[in-house]
């Protein structure tokens, strides 16, 4: 393709090709400082015109690649960076078969990992981003990769996708050069990507032992309750895109995780109280 770039994120290498220059330039800026992938990549993503003439006239980006959703709506070229991110997410969600993939954020301290999972809007991205600036190592805001052989968690520290209110929360906390452009009017409202800090990038190849699973929920009065193992198992299978396709290996990895980790659901009214609750539960789990 005319423009292209390869990216190494945790254990996964992507090759991204584009019919236009701008999405590749935006990716290169956002992912400055990431390690160089080797020559062979795990997945190919393509950003191409929906129809040949849409390269120039009202440019419209179709997300293509090794694994695609046939009915994915094309996006405007102004949101090309988001299209590239969605293309990479799609490869992970549909094509990742080397690790058990959990739709979860994760952070690490002392070699032990905290897994945060919940429905979209539960605030796991923002919580993980904040913890990553306050003494924890950010492993990832979107996907956590559980090793099938060793049960340890691999980092997948792609650029954090901040939405709407979370953008201002993080702009107060983090230097401006770590942010991508603000993208207004996307299907999910305003989005701004944020590059994880140096520590997250330096340690991205280091796995961690899962130690605590939390199910955060934003918007309620502060409360925490323990969650039974069967419920944790159910929720994690629902949070995994490849549990079924991994068969027995997925079953062993997930029962291992559930059996070896305490879990709790937390409700929180604002991010500061959530951080306090996380630190307290972490201390109790230790």
């Amino acid at each position: 393709m005319k423009h292209s770039l390869s990216l190494q994120i945790g254990p996964v290498a992507f090759r991204i090709g584009s019919a236009w220059r701008s999405p590749i330039e935006a990716l290169a800026r956002l992912y400055a400082g990431y390690p160089d992938p080797g020559r062979v990549c795990d997945f190919t993503v393509r950003l191409e015109p929906e129809k040949p003439w849409r390269r120039w006239i009202r440019p419209s980006v179709a997300i293509q690649g090794d694994y695609i959703l046939p009915d994915a709506a094309p996006m405007s070229l102004a949101h090309g960076l988001l299209a590239a991110e969605m293309g990479m997410n799609l490869q992970m969600a549909l094509g990742q078969k080397s690790h058990l993939l959990l739709h979860a954020a994760s952070v690490e301290k002392d070699g032990r990992a905290l897994i945060l999972t919940g429905e979209s809007g539960a605030g796991k991205s923002t919580l993980a981003a904040l913890l990553g600036e306050r003494g924890w190592r950010l492993m990832g805001d979107e996907f956590a990769l559980l090793g099938l052989e060793d049960g340890r968690l691999r980092a997948f520290p792609r650029a954090i996708s901040l939405k709407n209110g979370a953008i201002t929360v993080m702009e107060r906390e983090v230097a401006p050069q770590r942010f991508g452009p603000r993208l207004d009017g996307t299907p999910k409202g305003a989005i701004r990507h944020m590059r994880p800090n140096e520590r997250a990038l330096e340690a991205m190849a280091e796995p961690a032992q899962p130690a605590l699973v939390l199910f955060p929920r934003f918007g309620e009065a502060a409360a925490a309750r323990g969650v039974g193992q069967a419920e944790v198992f159910m929720r994690l299978t629902q949070a995994s895109t490849n549990y079924v396709s991994l068969g027995a290996a997925g079953f062993e990895a997930l029962t291992g995780l559930v059996g070896g980790c305490p879990a709790a659901a937390i409700d929180y009214p604002d991010t500061e109280s959530a951080i306090d609750m996380v630190e307290q539960l972490w201390a109790e789990a230790a």
Binding site: Q229, A230, F233, T237, V244, T255
Partner: peptide
Amino acid sequence: TVALDGLSLLFHRPSGMTHI
């Protein structure tokens, strides 16, 4: 079979399916 707080998790090899 794996027991989880009073329930049983069954991985059924011929189908590759998990049942609680």
